[in-house]
C-alpha cells in the first residue's frame, strides 16, 4: 500500500455553510489535464459508498453503479465535437444550438467493461459496441490480448473505451494500443472509468496524453497485490456472479 492519505472534505450543495455539510473521503486530485474527475457531489459520494459497501446486494450494486456510469457517459460525451446549429422553436423563436458531429462507438474491455454498456445505450440508443478480451498471462503476468471484435470503420469513429476499474492500467493501455493499431487516432479515444488508482491514472495519462480519461473517483492507492484501495472488490464478480 502506498503512503497516500485519503483526502477528506465537506461535500454538499454550495448554499450550505461548511459546518452543515457532511465530511467524506473524496477523490484524490491529479495534475493531468487529460483526466476529468466527476464533481464530488454528495450524491456521487453516497452512490460510491453504496457500491463499495460489502453488504450491498447485487441488485443494488448494479442499479447504483449504473447511475454513476450514466454520469460518466454524459460527461464523456461532452468531450465530443459539436457544430453550431440554429433552429426555430415550436413557439417561433430562434435558438442558436449545436448539433452532434462525428460517429461514435463503444468498446468494452471484457468482462467488467460490458457492465457499462447499458448506461451507454441509455444515452446513445443505437451505438455500436466492440469488444476486447485481455487476460493476464499466468507465466509472464503481463496482459495478453485474447480476442477482439471491433466495428470495421472504427478508424473513422470516436471511441468510448469502457472499463470500470483502473488499477495498474495494464489492460487499458493494451486496449488503447489495439485501437491505435486499427487506425483510431489517440485524440479520438475517451476512456470511461469508475474508480482509478492514482498510479494507474498517472501511467495512463502520461503514456497517452491525448486520450481523455473520465473517472468518477481516484482512490488512495494500490495494495501489494495491485488491488485498488479502498476499491470495491472485483467489479465483474459483484456485477455478474456474486
Amino acid at each position: 500500500m502506498t503512503d497516500n492519505t485519503a483526502p477528506s472534505q465537506s461535500v454538499g450543495p454550495e448554499y450550505l455553510p461548511i459546518g452543515r455539510k457532511p465530511t467524506a473521503t473524496v477523490s484524490t486530485n491529479l495534475a493531468h489535464d487529460n483526466v476529468t474527475i466527476l464533481p464530488q457531489t454528495s450524491q456521487l459520494i453516497a452512490l460510491l459508498t453504496m457500491i463499495r459497501d460489502k453488504n450491498t446486494g447485487r441488485a443494488d450494486f448494479i442499479f447504483h453503479s449504473n447511475r454513476i456510469i450514466r454520469l460518466l457517459v454524459e460527461e464523456g460525451l461532452n468531450h465530443l465535437p459539436v457544430v453550431e446549429h440554429t433552429i426555430t422553436t415550436p413557439v417561433g423563436r430562434t435558438y442558436s444550438g449545436v448539433k452532434f458531429e462525428g460517429k461514435i462507438c463503444g468498446v468494452s474491455i471484457m468482462r467488467a467493461g460490458e457492465s457499462m454498456e447499458q448506461a451507454l445505450r441509455e444515452c446513445c440508443r443505437s451505438v455500436r459496441i466492440g469488444k476486447i478480451l485481455i487476460q493476464r498471462d499466468e507465466e509472464t503476468s503481463k496482459p495478453k490480448l485474447y480476442y477482439d471484435k471491433l466495428p470495421e470503420d472504427i478508424a473513422e469513429r470516436w471511441v468510448l473505451l469502457l472499463d470500470p476499474m483502473l488499477a495498474t492500467g495494464g489492460s487499458a493501455l493494451m486496449a488503447v494500443e489495439v485501437l491505435k493499431s486499427r487506425g483510431v487516432p489517440e485524440d479520438h479515444i475517451l476512456f470511461l472509468n469508475l474508480i482509478a488508482s492514482p498510479e494507474g491514472a498517472k501511467n495512463f495519462a502520461e503514456r497517452f496524453p491525448k486520450v481523455r480519461v473520465v473517472t468518477a473517483f481516484v482512490d488512495m492507492g494500490l495494495d501489494e497485490k495491485n488491488y485498488i484501495v479502498p476499491g470495491l472488490g472485483d467489479f465483474g464478480d459483484r456485477f455478474y456472479t456474486m
Binding site: A6, S8, V11, P22, T23, A24, T25, S42, I45, A46, L48, T49, R52, D53, K54, N55, D223, Y227, V229, P230, G231, L232, G233, D234, R238
Partner: peptide, 16 residues
C-alpha cells in the same frame, strides 16, 4: 457521514 467496509476489508469514509 458513514463508514463502510469493502469486500477486500478496506475502510471507506462515505455518505449515507
Amino acid at each position: 457521514p458513514e463508514q463502510v467496509i469493502t469486500p477486500a476489508g478496506n475502510v471507506y469514509m462515505g455518505l449515507k
